[in-house]
Computed example of a mutant assay.
Amino acid sequence: MRLLITGGAGFIGSHIADRALANGWDVAVLDDLSSGRRENVPDGATFFQTDIRDKSAVEAAFAEFRPTAVSHQAAQASVAISVREPQLDAAINITGSLNILTTSVAHKVERIVFASTGGAIYGEVPEGIRAGTDFNPVPISPYACSKFAVEKYLECFRQEHGLNYTVLRYGNVYGPRQDPHGEAGVVAIFCNRILAGESIAVNAKREVGDAGCIRDYVFIDDVAKANIAALEGRIPDQILNVGTGSETTTRQLADILQQTLKRTIEVLPNEKRAGDIERSLLNADRLVELLGPVATINDGLAATADWFEQRAKSAQSAT
């Protein structure tokens, strides 16, 4: 397989690249490095520093590398930025994605896997319910709208051009290499602050002092594994949730990380953050049925905390 990964210098994309290379695939990474890091691109991968909004540059990369499959991870991923700059969000997430889709068709790409969002698309999930792929989508942010739009474009391209696709709707992905900047980086933020002995804040779910919002935190290894399975055609579903089906509050996250890192720091209550979904939980039964058990929050956080701790030690020794 010749796999091109958009956003492959980022947190999720670089893990997919690692697995694909381990499988013996030819891998190319296409990334503008606006949020990704050049050092995340693994040895052995061809690298194109390209913005997906630049159609001619995208076409040049496809023509040079000749991919047979595409993993489309590149995105503007901040809900806050999408609200503040909806045109920017649409330019990257919709127009940029259309550049990838049209170029994939032109170069006869056999399959595309698209990184979508479970939490943002499903919106508020009521108590006692896990959102399955049949759950009514409620994309209330421009970011969620753009992701949902691309899902619909993919179906159009399947019907019009025969482009095979798989949509993976992620929960809150965490793990080694996660960037602390941005809304999805709470695990990285907490790890860094705990290791530095600094206080952390728990944004309220409803009232200051509560345990915080409920999320479905999914470990990066399970996300990368799902992407590889989809690229290999082992996921027959056109849309699949990638989560755990287990809920974790922000306070639980803070407590587990303190226990894992064997450090105690001050945990401060904070106001509810505007626009935060109170409860997001995915039904991941189909993922488990297809690919086997996913990592528990304790095991995933242990591996993640160890990576951040080793990185902090390396940084200290370097100085």
Rank of each mutant, 00 (worst) to 15 (best):
S34A: 13
P126H: 11
A305K: 05
Q76A: 13
L281R: 01
Q87S: 02
V208I: 14
P236M: 00
P293Q: 03
L88S: 12
L231H: 02
R273K: 03
P180F: 15
Y170I: 06
A302G: 08
A229E: 11
N99S: 11
N270L: 10
K147N: 11
A144Q: 13
G245M: 07
D89P: 02
T166W: 04
R279K: 03
Q316L: 15
A284N: 06
I194V: 11
T46A: 12
V138M: 05
V167S: 07
G7R: 06
P67K: 12
Y165W: 01
N227T: 13
Y153K: 00
G197K: 07
A120G: 04
F48P: 04
S246H: 09
T249L: 04
K55R: 15
G300K: 06
L163A: 03
G8M: 07
I81W: 13
I189P: 00
V58G: 00
A57P: 03
N298D: 15
A226T: 07
R251T: 15
V223W: 04
I94K: 01
G182Y: 12
I256Q: 08
A9V: 02
I112A: 03
L290D: 10
N283H: 06
H181V: 15
A230D: 10
S78Q: 10
I265G: 02
K152R: 14
F47M: 12
R158T: 08
G24E: 08
S78G: 03
V41P: 02
V173I: 07
Q238G: 01
E271F: 03
Y174A: 01
K108F: 08
V109R: 04
L301M: 04
A144W: 11
F157M: 11
G209R: 12
K262Y: 09
A131L: 03
G175D: 05
A69W: 10
G119C: 09
L261G: 08
G182L: 15
I12D: 11
G24P: 05
S56Q: 13
Q258I: 12
A188K: 09
S280Y: 08
D51L: 07
I100A: 00
P42Y: 15
L282K: 06
E160R: 14
K313A: 06
N227D: 13
I12P: 04
V105A: 05
Q159C: 03
G7A: 08
L291N: 02
D285I: 00
V113P: 05
A20P: 06
I228P: 07
V242I: 15
E271D: 15
P180D: 14
R66V: 12
G7M: 10
T46P: 01
H15P: 01
L98S: 01
S35C: 10
V58I: 12
A57W: 12
Y153F: 15
K152F: 05
G10N: 14
A60I: 00
T260V: 14
Y143P: 10
F114I: 09
V267R: 10
R2N: 14
H161N: 13
P142S: 01
E127A: 14
F48E: 14
V267A: 08
